[in-house]
Design a protein around this nucleic acid. Structure first.
Lengths: 259, 259
DNA sequence: CGGGAGGTTGACAATCGTCAATCAGAGTGG
DNA sequence: CCACTCTGATTGACGATTGTCAACCTCCCG
């Protein structure tokens, strides 16, 4: 785990994070500056390493700068449930700024860099600057909306639908983060991990992916790359409607490709 | 649906709500007064009636004054997943103050009274008064924590464990809201609704409850009253640890009864 | 070239859903 | 007070989806 001191270059490290917040809220120049100036420590974390452990009293909230991470809970019997996946620009653990102990762990899916911000820094900024407070509240509420969709996904959909659904969600979110296209993206998860996010076993994930491929809905291009051959049909099979992501209404390209 | 004008009596309608916020945060006298003075409309809503419909652009956030409500999503095939249950003092739809369209519906489980607060009123209060903003952020984050636990519950636990788990959660939350005891409480849900919260069918809920009763873990006292014969064992079977509810550390009675 | 992680496959088992019939209990109206 | 009705709970037989186990394969990487 490499630790660096706060970045002072011309492309601020926290820029993707600010851009994500601004996607749904207006921020003033001063707000933006205050966010970019958040004191932070950059850490490069290896694949599979834990960022936060369940039960920790974490002093830091972390923002993804590069790479992918997951939030997960462990249940009796040692089984694991992934409850969220995070990518560039996302706030993984805002709750560490407001709650005492972590109710879940955070683990890197790939190597990546995170910006660790002390809990007080981020909490105070949210409370002092209304626009930032609003932006963080919205971000948190959208997160919660995704949690709700995931409850419905694992609670009331069969394996085929569940997997098609998460494939659609990832496609859209990756595109939004500028990390892929709707038709072709890299999903850095093993089938075991995909099972942990959908409440299935890796064996059944394997079978289901194969069946989706056989039906011409997706393509698997080695190296964990997914090709979505037919977005509309896959979204249909996955019972996927993007409303719960609370995207802006005015994203012409996105809406176009979603027809 | 009965509509009344804002309450002006000596026991303010919004008091349970303020008490819930104060359970986890300190509020000043002025903050408390500002919250209690929130302009609102009281509505008495009948059982089964919808408070918010999925897809609505709701102008109001609602606070539970009495009765129980659920938040639910509908998936393809008409199946339903309950994603949250709310009781006296809880904020059901804070998100309506910050997000545009509702990604889920809200329905009354019993008759009850809700206080409808205009989205701008509650949003502005949160942004103008740091202590209130903090309290609402914490409330939202605890909500999110419960969502995550529910993802794990329906994703990675079997029927018996799932049901034991929600029975424990409800017992604790009802006790906290002053609506029941750990050993004996009224749960106003049909088995169908219990199935919708745990991702099971009502038939399987019936079988599972019977099995829990046969094993001496719970008692069913007609009229949807549940008796928890042996808390420790039920919590064990339900893989229930209360950490995710982020209760205060200093709740002596609660900790005592949870041994 | 070898090791290892991850993916695939088949046989079989368990959990849970479906369907349909029946039962229990609360509220209603005569 | 008693039939009547309606909703919800229970039960059994059966079937489908998904899990388990274990073997084997594939591909990346050193």
């Amino acid at each position: 785990m490499t630790t660096q001191h706060p970045h002072r270059g011309d492309r601020p490290t926290l820029e993707p994070f600010v851009r994500k917040l601004e996607y749904r809220t207006k921020l003033g120049k001063a707000d933006r500056a205050a966010l970019l100036a958040l004191p932070h420590t950059l850490k490069t974390i290896e694949q599979h390493q834990c960022v936060v452990r369940e039960g920790d009293r974490a002093q830091y909230s972390c923002l993804m700068v590069s790479g992918f991470s997951v939030r997960h809970k462990t249940v009796a019997g040692g089984y694991r449930q992934i409850v969220a996946i995070h990518m560039k620009g996302e706030m993984v653990d805002l709750q560490n700024s407001f709650l005492k102990t972590a109710d879940h762990g955070v683990q890197m899916l790939t190597v990546g860099t995170v910006a660790m911000v002390h809990r007080d820094e981020i909490g105070n900024l949210a409370l002092e600057r209304p626009a930032i407070g609003r932006a963080m509240m919205i971000d948190t509420l959208v997160d919660a909306s995704i949690f709700r969709e995931w409850i419905a996904n694992v609670g009331r959909r069969d394996a085929r639908t569940r997997i098609a659904h998460v494939l659609c969600e990832f496609a859209l979110r990756l595109k939004l983060a500028g990390l892929g296209r709707l038709t072709n993206y890299r999903l850095p998860m093993t089938q075991q991990q995909l099972g942990d996010t959908t409440g299935l076993t890796s064996v059944h994930v394997s079978r289901t992916l194969k069946s989706l491929e056989a039906d011409g809905l997706i393509q698997r291009l080695g190296q964990r790359c997914i090709g979505i051959t037919n977005w509309k049909t896959l979204a249909d099979v996955g019972d996927f409607q993007s409303g719960y992501l609370h995207l802006r209404d005015d994203e012409p390209k996105l809406r176009q490709s979603m027809n």
